[in-house]
Simulated assay, not measured.
Amino acid sequence: MDYRRTYRAAAIVFADLVSRIPAADLNGPGLGEWTLRDLLGHTVSSALRQVPAVLADRAPGIVVPVPEGYFALLRLAPTEMVGAARTASADDARATGTDLGDDPAREISGWIGKATAALASVADDDVVATPAGGMRVRDWLPTRTFELVVHSSDVAAAAGLPIEFDPETLSESTALAARVAALTGGGLTTLRSLTGRGPLPEGFSIV
Rank of each mutant, 00 (worst) to 15 (best):
R8I: 03
D16G: 15
R20L: 04
R20P: 03
P22M: 08
P22L: 08
D25H: 12
G28N: 08
P29T: 12
L31Y: 11
W34R: 07
R37F: 03
L40F: 01
L40I: 12
L40Q: 08
L40A: 11
S45A: 15
S45L: 12
L48V: 09
R49G: 02
L55C: 08
L55A: 11
D57V: 03
R58I: 10
P60S: 13
P60Y: 02
P65G: 11
V66Q: 14
G69K: 07
A72W: 01
L74V: 10
R75Q: 13
R75K: 13
L76T: 13
A77H: 06
A77F: 01
T79K: 14
A85Y: 05
A90L: 11
D92R: 14
A93Y: 00
R94Y: 02
A95S: 14
T96A: 13
L100S: 07
G101K: 11
D103F: 01
E107V: 13
I108N: 05
I112S: 00
I112N: 00
G113F: 02
V122W: 00
D124V: 03
D124K: 09
D124M: 05
D126P: 02
T130S: 15
G133T: 04
R136H: 13
V137A: 05
L141W: 00
L141V: 15
T145Q: 08
E147T: 06
S153L: 12
D154F: 03
L161Y: 02
D166L: 06
S173G: 13
A177M: 14
T190C: 10
L191F: 12
L191Y: 09
S193V: 01
S193D: 12
E202G: 05
F204Y: 15
